[in-house]
Amino acid sequence: CGFHLRGSMDLPPPLARAVVTGEAVPVELEEALGRALRAAGGVLAAAPETARARIVVLEVRNERRVLAVGSDGKAREYELRYAVRYRIDAADGRPLLAPQQVAVTRDLVFDTGDFLAKRDEEATVHAEMVREAAAALLRRAAAALR
């Protein structure tokens, strides 16, 4: 039916050695981007001077909204949303990719009796969302720069 194994998802040359910059980039996003870069065959440059591209994180939004309340008026389900606005510049500061956004949304069922465990589950889901956002960011950037 026309499907074939992906031939090359090689990173475009500038992304193969990139650095993450921006004001107050969350540590876990930086780590997730580093991991996603390594998984795609690139490296996270140790210093901006040695990088060929800069992933500039402009804004990170971490939202949590009540999706459903029970008939007792207490929250039963939350919607978590993690959105990263970014742009990509070349090493010389020339823009490679105009500002754009990736967002990941997840639902989380809540249980007041297991509050601490649910807080941890939220942290686990959050970490998964960060990884997913980092992978989506890189996938989009790679497709746009190829």
Partner: peptide, 9 residues
């Protein structure tokens, strides 16, 4: 708001 009134902890 409902979101605030539904707070449990």
């Amino acid at each position: 708001t409902l979101a605030v009134a539904s707070t449990t902890h």
